[in-house]
């Protein structure tokens, strides 16, 4: 008796959730790396510049992401009043609500601290809080999906959303996309700064961008490795997970996963970094456009990843039937008549 697979569509039907997961993860990433740079950079120009840009990128990201999250609700107005409504504290949606609810203002404050220059001390305090909160933010996007974590009897019913791998995957992807976003922003910043000197900063954006790009490579490597482990776990997991594995690597989602994420978001960018390195260091051509392209690709890849994961959630763990029951009375063959 082959199992029944119930397909269900909801989050995958609209852009809200994938974009929220993407932007939320990204914001978490930018926030963390930015704050880290700020804390560890020892006030050196490059690091300061990076941290500043990161802070600026975080704000729109989390705001747009938050809006997307609210508007996927059937009743957004109730969603906005989450502190009043969200009463079930073992639900990751409630937890998430609070995370986003604290993260957003903090990111604003941190950005403001840069813009209005509250002074280093204040900023570093904010940064110190921002680092862990940024991590939680990205982590949470993963937990939201693998919500079955709080399930009784320790079962969860969307096999692709593996609670052991998804959160970390989203954190790493948060880093890679976050760094990419910062890198891109830094480059653009440089150009803008030339036209609007009052933005300040400017400086050698090239080196910063390049450094960012290298950091990103590290993140991408980690992410790639993790994806590998994730797939391995799925392939060797329960029947449901094996189906999910098939769906992702062979099924309808395969093109999105392989081309859209693995190629666009991981392989090509790393290759691009290599080429850029050679071009720059060996042949001394700046070849900035390669960096631009790479950052954009990483971002695109990160978005596609969220989409594939959400779409993959349409596959539910299969229901199984009990074995057949009625013994068919078997009649011995008849002489001369066969059968």
């Amino acid at each position: 008796m082959e199992p029944i697979v119930l397909w269900q569509h909801k989050w995958g039907l609209s852009f809200h959730i994938p974009w929220y997961l993407f932007l939320g993860g990204l914001a978490g990433g930018t926030m963390t790396v930015g704050a880290l740079a700020d804390l560890l950079g020892g006030g050196r120009q490059g690091f300061r510049q990076f941290a500043k840009v990161a802070a600026y990128v975080t704000v729109p990201a989390i705001l747009v992401g938050g809006l997307a999250l609210s508007f996927h609700l059937g009743k957004p107005e109730r969603g906005f009043a989450f502190p009043l409504f969200f009463t079930n504290y073992q639900s990751w949606l409630t937890i998430g609500g609070s995370v986003v609810g604290t993260f957003a203002p903090l990111s604003l404050a941190y950005a403001a601290a840069w813009y209005f220059d509250f002074g280093r001390a204040v900023r570093l305090v904010l940064a110190a809080i921002a680092v862990p909160l940024g991590l939680v933010m990205s982590l949470y996007t993963g937990f939201l999906l693998s919500a079955a974590w709080v399930m009784p009897a320790d079962r969860w019913y969307v096999p692709l959303w593996d609670r052991d791998y998804l959160p970390v995957l989203f954190v790493l992807s948060g880093f890679s996309t976050g760094l990419a976003a910062c890198g891109l922003a830094v480059l653009l910043w440089g150009r803008l700064a030339r036209h609007f000197p009052r933005l300040g900063g400017g400086g050698d954006t090239g080196t910063v961008a390049e450094a960012t790009s290298l950091a990103d490579v590290a993140a991408l490597l980690a992410e790639g490795a993790w994806v590998y482990l994730f797939l391995g776990a799925l392939a060797s997991g329960t029947l449901g997970q094996q189906m999910a594995f098939g769906l992702l690597t062979r099924g309808e989602l395969a093109p999105w996963f392989w081309w859209g994420f693995v190629a666009t978001g991981l392989a090509v960018p790393m290759l691009a970094s290599l080429i850029h390195l050679v071009a720059h260091r060996v042949f001394h051509v700046p070849a900035r456009w390669i960096l631009y392209a790479k950052f954009v690709l990483v971002l695109a890849g990160g978005l596609v990843l969220r989409y594939t994961i959400v779409w993959g959630g349409d596959l539910k763990a299969p229901l199984v039937f009990p074995p057949a029951l009625f013994q068919v009375p078997t009649l011995p063959p008849l002489p001369g008549l066969g059968g």
Binding site: G74, A148, Y157
Partner: peptide, 15 residues
């Protein structure tokens, strides 16, 4: 009170 988030749908074994 339901906010229509669809979370239950993903948690439910039976859709």
């Amino acid at each position: 009170t339901c906010i229509g988030c669809g979370y239950c749908l993903y948690a439910c074994p039976f859709g």
